[in-house]
Amino acid sequence: MKRIRDKIEYYVLEVDNRWRILPVKRQRLLTKLFFVGYALLTLLVIVSICISTSQRNNKISINHIDGISKKTQTKDTIQADKTNLLIKK
């Protein structure tokens, strides 16, 4: 575990040294580019959430989990289930 921590620490120090070697103008440019990318990604996620929640058929139904959804059963299987229930009683 100590070796992994040492490797990670070494990698972080190397990256920090490379960042400090860069000229200040280049650091500012890269910082601005990273911020713009982050802002665009955030904006895309917010727009995606707004689009998905504005749809009319977007409703949350909270039901007991039965294993097989009752909505996907056809009329024949529902009728067979009713018949089986009557036979069991």
Rank of each mutant, 00 (worst) to 15 (best):
L33C: 03
W19G: 02
I65C: 09
T83C: 02
W19T: 00
I62W: 11
I65T: 06
S69K: 08
L40C: 12
T83M: 11
T83K: 15
V15Y: 09
A80F: 00
V12Q: 14
R3Q: 14
K75W: 07
N17E: 12
K88M: 10
Q73F: 08
I8Q: 03
L30H: 00
K88L: 12
K25F: 06
Q79E: 09
D81W: 02
L43H: 05
I49F: 11
C50R: 05
E14H: 05
K2S: 09
R56L: 09
E14R: 14
I60E: 08
E14N: 07
R26N: 02
L86Q: 15
L30D: 03
T72N: 04
V45N: 04
K89M: 11
R56D: 11
L30A: 01
N57P: 02
V24K: 15
R5T: 06
V15A: 12
D76T: 04
A80E: 13
K88Y: 13
I21Q: 06
K75E: 13
I65F: 14
N63Q: 13
M1L: 14
T77R: 13
T72Q: 05
I49C: 04
I68A: 07
S61P: 00
Y11M: 13
L29C: 04
G67A: 01
L86K: 15
Q27C: 01
L29G: 00
A80M: 08
V24Q: 14
T42W: 13
Y11K: 15
P23V: 08
T83R: 15
L30K: 05
V47Q: 04
F34R: 12
R28L: 08
Q79N: 07
S48I: 05
L33P: 03
Q27A: 02
K7D: 10
I49Q: 03
K7H: 05
S54R: 08
I46N: 03
L85E: 11
Y38R: 10
E9S: 05
A39Y: 04
I21T: 09
I62Y: 13
S48K: 11
R56P: 03
S48Q: 11
K82E: 14
F35D: 02
K70M: 06
Y38T: 12
K89N: 10
K32D: 09
G37V: 01
L41V: 07
F35V: 03
P23E: 13
H64D: 07
S69T: 04
T53C: 08
V12H: 10
I65V: 10
K32A: 12
A80N: 08
I78M: 01
L86N: 11
Q79P: 02
F35C: 03
K70V: 06
K75T: 12
S52L: 07
V12W: 09
S54H: 09
